[in-house]
Amino acid sequence: MLEQKVILITGANRGIGLTIAQVCTRLGAIVLLAGRNDAQLEIIAEQLGENAIPMAYDIADEEQVKAAFGHIKQHIGRLDGLVNNAGAMQSAPVGMTRIADLRAQLDVNTVATFQHAQLATRLMAKQQSGAIVNLCSIIGEQGSAGQAAYATSKAAVSGMTKAMAKEFAPLGVRINGVAPGFIDTDMTADFTAGQREEILANIGLGRMGNTQDVADLVSFLLSDHASYITGQIIGVDGGMRL
């Protein structure tokens, strides 16, 4: 389904990003694994095989991102897919949210996503093809008490996705968003049993999501099977209500 497509995945060293990388390689893609931990990425690349290439850089550092795309352009020469997966979540009531913490989440979740899409579309414009999948969130779509900063950063990603989809459709580049609900990852590991029970009561399908649920949708959106889908924010939330 993704044979020989070159796909850059941010935050590929764990959680949803790692599963996306595993699914994409299984489907025949050449995956570029972006993350900060060089040693960890090397190990993952080795596990995934010869079609996985580690790229260690800080996705929130403007110059490092430019250098990473320069490297892709020079050494690979094309980019068929980008998954803006890396994210940061800090939960706190509005009154207890430092502006520095809001900015930190905006830098990782929103600004880095924008810059990656900006540079990816430059490569894809030349090819007149490509697919970008942005990881949005049910929290950005519906809002969640105690998570206003995170919701702000993710709602911005949804708006960005829709705007960029319109701008790049004439160039044959598709841009979609995936909005996970409660997915069992490191990011949600510190939820208490009580919090988990409360959340489960609001999930129609009666279970927490797993990384495979998200990766299956992301890989579909990257593939040519989704060639008529752009500008959509698709929930992977088991019918969750917040």
Binding site: K66, F69, K73, R122, L123, K126, Q128, E167, P170, L171
Partner: peptide, 17 residues
């Protein structure tokens, strides 16, 4: 829209970013 195609073309032609 064409401006972005032009940019890609110039980057390729002169091997720059």
């Amino acid at each position: 829209t064409a401006h972005m195609i032009l940019i890609a073309e110039l980057e390729d032609t002169f091997d720059i970013m």
